[in-house]
Simulated scan of single mutants.
Amino acid sequence: MSAEHKPKPLPFVANFAAGAIAGISEILTFYPLDVVKTRMQLDTGKSQGLVGTLSSIVKQEGVGRLYRGLVPPLLLEAPKRAVKFAANDFWGKHYVDWSGESKMTQSLSILTGCSAGATESVVVVPFELVKIKLQDKASTFKGPMDVVKQVIQKQGVLGLYAGMESTFWRHFWWNGGYFGCIFTVKGMLPKPKTSKDELFNNFVSGAVGGLCGTMLNTPFDVVKSRIQGAERIPGVKPKYNWTYPAIATMLREEGFASLYKGFIPKVLRLAPGGGVLLLVVEFTLGVFRQVLGPPYI
């Protein structure tokens, strides 16, 4: 391959499919940690910790409870991850063109990730709300459709978008940290000489990106869980409504540590999960390139 040759960018459908396959792979592997994380975030008292919360769920509610609420995120993961990587590809190309740079830079990578997160957040809100309602220990809903039915009956269709603003900030900061760190870590790692080296670099950079993204966005995730998990009572102002005022309320009433409730199960899921995600995406895109042949190789 000559120095001037660059593979043609893959079509949108390839990025969409790669993101979808990666998302489903990640969620099937790590979902129980998400249930534990949500329980810890909704608990306004003293946290039992990861092990205590996990053992409490298993002892009191059974192992099956660790998979309660799986259907909404499973249905969501394909479009969500697909939108994430397709949007990242879309914004990345446009920001490079608009900036006049010849290639992606660190600042453009962060801006691209944040923009992809903002785009992704619009898709996920109703699914996240249903998932949180089902994961709550006090949940009496029969299933996903029962949540949708009751929310619409009580609050109208817009009720499904409760927590939209907090979801925006959660995805904005996670994606900025994730894609920004991937760019930096890949630049620090030795240039891959074999396909195994490339897979290793993708996993490491994805895992570090997942860790950085999780550190940045956990307070916003906690607030989102509180907003979406709360029962909406007509005429009564919710305690948690907007992201930054809610963060201030939690700092005042529960202290700084409350903003990182559920951090351990969240990072245990999203750090290796971020590695798995990028690994599967890059592998799938590589398969597409081989199938489509020149000029995509």
Rank of each mutant, 00 (worst) to 15 (best):
S2M: 06
K6C: 10
K6N: 11
K8L: 10
P9T: 00
P11E: 08
N15Q: 09
A17G: 09
A20C: 13
A20F: 03
I27Y: 05
L28P: 02
P32R: 01
D34W: 07
V36I: 15
R39F: 10
Q48C: 03
G49E: 09
V51W: 06
L54P: 05
S55Y: 07
G64A: 03
G69C: 12
V71T: 08
A78L: 11
P79M: 09
N88K: 03
K93E: 13
Y95A: 12
Y95G: 04
V96L: 10
K103R: 14
L108Q: 10
T112S: 11
S115Q: 05
A116M: 01
A118W: 09
S121Q: 02
E128V: 13
L129P: 01
L129G: 05
L129Q: 05
L134M: 07
K137W: 09
A138I: 02
K142T: 15
G143S: 11
V147E: 03
V148K: 02
Q150L: 13
K154S: 15
M164F: 14
S166P: 08
R170N: 15
H171Y: 12
Y178A: 09
G180Y: 04
I182H: 03
F183L: 08
V185M: 10
P192H: 07
K193W: 07
K196I: 14
L199C: 08
F203Q: 07
G206H: 02
L211S: 05
C212I: 08
P219N: 02
V222Y: 00
I227S: 04
E231P: 14
I233G: 08
V236D: 04
N241R: 06
Y244D: 02
P245V: 01
A248V: 04
E253R: 02
E254G: 06
A257R: 05
L259Y: 02
K261V: 08
P265H: 00
L279F: 11
V280I: 11
V281T: 10
E282L: 12
F288Y: 05
P294D: 05
